[in-house]
Amino acid sequence: MQIQAVGLSHHYRGAEASALLELSHTFEEGTLTVVSGPSGSGKSTLLYLLALMLTPSLGSIRWGDQDVQALEDTERSELRAKHVGFVFQDAVLDLSSSALDNVTEAGWLAGMTRVESETKASELLEKFGIGAKARFRPGEVSGGQAQRIALCRALVKSPSIIFADEPTGNLDSDSADVVWRALEDAATEEGATVIVATHDKQRTKRMPNQLRLVS
């Protein structure tokens, strides 16, 4: 699904400066776009705006043919549940649930049945080499494994849009490779629109689609 930002600005309440100022960009379907820039340039803000978790102060957002920035919370949540997979910097897992349950929950919230969601979650955990840890809780696995669980959670509902906010910021090189490869595959093989905010200049040099933000 194509995502289009037009004149997008956002100003956090109480902040002195705008977090994002008049950004216009089109994120094409089936591509991975790297959003880079120094700290405070608005990378995360852009992701949250595009993921409909924030409402822009100015500008508009289109998902495909649909204007989405002015939708009510219920409709925004529904779109997010149906279409969006999100990978956060620190995984953000439910520490009291198993890896399998963490992944399954995203499928449930999207409207999948328990069986569908669990089956897909198990397949993904196997694919990313953590099938043996399916019954482990996040506190019982390494940081790299936790981020893979978060990646599985983002992929379980076969999303058409994936946002990743510094997904490899806390990972070793091997784990980071796994995550990057999975995100690239989601774009090229599944046709998802993948938008990754990152500081990792070395790894993103080779990426064809870049959006550089400035402070």
């Binding site: 219920t74 949540s77 997010r80 999100f86 956060f88 439910d94 929950e105 995203a106 919230l109 959670r153």
Partner: peptide
């Protein structure tokens, strides 16, 4: 709160 934020990010509406 973090659990609630996580669920909201995954698509849980306010009514959920």
């Amino acid at each position: 709160a973090k659990d609630i934020g996580r669920r909201r990010a995954l698509g849980a509406s306010r009514s959920v």
